[in-house]
Simulated scan of single mutants.
Amino acid sequence: MSIPIKTTGAEVRLTGLGKRYGQVQAVKPLDLVIEGGTLVTLLGPSGCGKTTLLRMIAGLEQATEGRIFIGGRDVTLLSAGERNVSMVFQSYALFPHMSVLENVAYGLVSSGERKQAAHAKAEAVLETVGLKGFGGRLPSEMSGGQQQRVAVARALVLEPDVLLFDEPLSNLDTRLRRTMREEIRALQQRLGLTVVYVTHDQSEALAVSDKIVVMRNAGIAQAGAPEVLYASPDSVFVATFMGEANHVRGVIESVTGEHCVLALDSARLTLPGRGLPPGPVDAVIRPEAIRIAPPDTPNGLEATVTRATYMGSHTEYYFGTAVGELFAQGADRLRRRQPGEKVRLLLDEEGVVVVRP
């Protein structure tokens, strides 16, 4: 049977979109374009506005200002049922008394489609998400990962223009989260879906996204491709939120063209200057940019091991240095450094970034 699912997603365009609750600005007016067929993640800490923004796209919250366009159609004043979007909730929200097949077909049946046709479509979509033959089971007879797939199938069977995910993997254990995020990404790419995905998990966002929108204080701090946000963050907040990062203070000694010389105590690095003038500056050092060397190695930073934690495949270290405490990882399973040991830290330039506060 052919799979009754659209294979092209609609563009979502937000213009001046904002939301107030009385005097509280839950989402500051913002502009955002989510291209059709891409997966865009709204990433940020609790209370930053990401879920409110998702619910406005879904039609579950009414925007206070601005407009929402889906596939070029103004849906700002339309109800959730009129927008042709589907949402996968954190709790999955499956009906416990219905079979898996009935859960998936429910939206079609409730909208007037004949039960036989609805069940046929539901069977096809269950096959798409890897649950062929599971239609007769109850949700309670399914694992957490299987229930999550049922929730996705229930959303997909409605052939939405946009598929919305609200923290879909937060109830799963670490290994299953990794598997399910890969499955969601593969499904999105195979079907060409437009997906808006909310999470507070940075690794999850990096793994699944075409674009990440980092939110802070009800607004957009920075938006871009995962590799851009990780390698070239605009601020200390974005840098430290996009994975592990050491925030230190240094000095830009000179600027030549688009590059600068950054001084971190005795270490000197030539980096993209990012338009910053000479003088004190914030810098971010990624843990993977730190290499541990013997204490008599020239250049680098003098350091003392303050903590060492064995993690199996690697050791996590904290070092005391003149620029502050630095976190790094070492793949030295056979020769672990001990607290109090003197070392020299060498810094790879591609993992050090100067940023605005």
Rank of each mutant, 00 (worst) to 15 (best):
S232Y: 14
A289W: 00
P298S: 12
V236Y: 02
V353E: 00
E141W: 13
R137A: 06
L30E: 05
I285N: 01
L78W: 05
F165P: 07
G130Q: 06
T76C: 12
R67D: 09
S46F: 08
R55N: 12
L14E: 01
R291W: 02
L78T: 07
S235V: 04
L131Y: 14
G37Q: 01
E167T: 03
A186D: 10
V214S: 08
D201A: 11
K342R: 15
V238G: 04
F237S: 09
T51C: 08
A239I: 00
V109S: 06
I70H: 01
Q188A: 01
V343R: 06
E82W: 07
L271I: 02
L164R: 09
R286E: 02
L269A: 01
C48M: 11
A239T: 00
R67H: 14
P272N: 06
E82L: 11
H259I: 09
R178S: 15
N171R: 13
S209I: 03
L271F: 01
L101C: 09
G71K: 00
E61W: 03
G22H: 13
N217G: 12
V152T: 11
F134A: 05
G330W: 03
D282R: 01
E167N: 06
F241Y: 10
R333Q: 15
K121M: 09
L126C: 07
R356V: 11
I212G: 03
M98G: 08
L326M: 06
V255R: 15
V213Q: 02
L53H: 04
V85K: 06
T7I: 04
K50D: 01
E82K: 13
D31M: 04
N299H: 14
L138I: 05
